[in-house]
Design a protein around this nucleic acid. Structure first.
Lengths: 199, 199
DNA sequence: GAGTTCACCTTACTCGAAGTAGGTTACCTT
DNA sequence: AAGGTAACCTACTTCGAGTAAGGTGAACTC
């Protein structure tokens, strides 16, 4: 049998296992309350192994975040292929996002905690993963919208990302708001603008 | 002379002094890298005093955040009085915000770190201070806009706040973007919507 | 003005968690 | 089977959050 001894597995597999467990623990307890000893124990391995593969607690979190972000990117990119217009692409992307945060709470919880690392040595790595997200929006807008200069396009992308992040956090406190409803709220402001509602 | 002995000052004054120093240290080093010993030393007092007045490191951060948020609220509220229209009010508010984050970097840095506390015991307190911010926007919109139902209004407020927060963080990396320019970017998306730029 | 009190303040600890030095064991190659 | 190496462990150090218990001085009584 393969499960008799839970020992000696290849590096790549162990790493995946560690990330999986770490994702759970970070999401459960929050980043600072989670302890490396705890994670190590749940994995069934000793603490130095975690440091062998991820260098630091922050490094482990980063690995988790990168994976979650990759998953989010995958989902949103898939959703936007075959869109018939800018409006359609935006709506599909938003819906995919709001579905993601509802169905994969753990992953989303992690992405939010990225913020907690600002001001630490990992700032560069974070900058990298952040771009992944905004570039997607920027590309989407570049395909369909006339953004003006590059700076404006970049700013608009950040703007959209920030808005959706916050709206997503708000959704956590409002279970009754469906992904479709959230998408509707977002589209209304983003696409039509607030002027449409002026008295 | 009053400065001869730096000892025995009344509680209220000491607290203000502690918050001032803590704000500096948290902004400099980041929340987790800052140590209570360090803060205590800079204040010229021993660590248990900090705990006497603020109970925990998180409590101290919270006190700093509350003060910063009060300052931000003050500034943005002042800016919007006497606005001639919804558009004008929004623009004034945004400009005041982007000026604030440029001129009071320390305070702004603190507000961002609020996110780091999500998932801890202080969640309730945070919820409180968050409302302060969104309520301001919600009230502004309530005065001038027809938001539809309450839920939609709340969502829109969160949306605007999130968007501006993220844009502000982006501005930190782009010194050359003036508060006026940032306000322009934000107004364009928020007021006119992205449809205005559709190809 | 001598004692009492209470707010302000300190030294000197505990405890838990991040990170590390160095040795050990199972597996694979030849 | 010898030996090399990748996977792994025990046992530490270090550092910072939080605490227990006690000192000191200004103000207020009498």
């Amino acid at each position: 049998m393969t499960t008799a001894k839970r020992k000696r597995m290849p590096k790549a597999e162990r790493m995946r296992q560690m990330i999986e467990i770490a994702e759970e623990v970070f999401a459960e307890r929050g980043y600072s309350a989670a302890s490396m000893d705890d994670i190590a124990e749940r994995v069934g391995v000793s603490k130095p192994m975690l440091y062998e593969y991820f260098n630091s607690k922050e490094g482990l979190l980063l690995a988790c975040i990168q994976q979650s972000r990759a998953a989010l990117r995958e989902v949103t990119e898939r959703a936007t292929v075959g869109a018939t217009s800018a409006e359609d692409a935006l709506r599909r992307g938003l819906l995919a996002f709001f579905v993601f945060i509802r169905e994969r709470r753990q992953a989303w919880s992690l992405l939010r905690h990225e913020m907690a690392l600002i001001g630490t040595g990992a700032a560069d790595e974070i900058e990298q993963t952040r771009r992944q997200q905004t570039d997607l929006i920027a590309a989407l807008m570049g395909d369909h919208l006339d953004a003006g200069d590059d700076l404006r396009a970049e700013a608009s992308a950040e703007f959209v990302v920030g808005a959706c992040e916050r709206l997503a956090i708000w959704c956590e406190r409002h279970e009754d708001v469906s992904p479709e409803t959230a998408t509707g709220y977002a589209m209304d402001v983003l696409w039509s603008g607030l002027s449409a509602r002026a008295r």
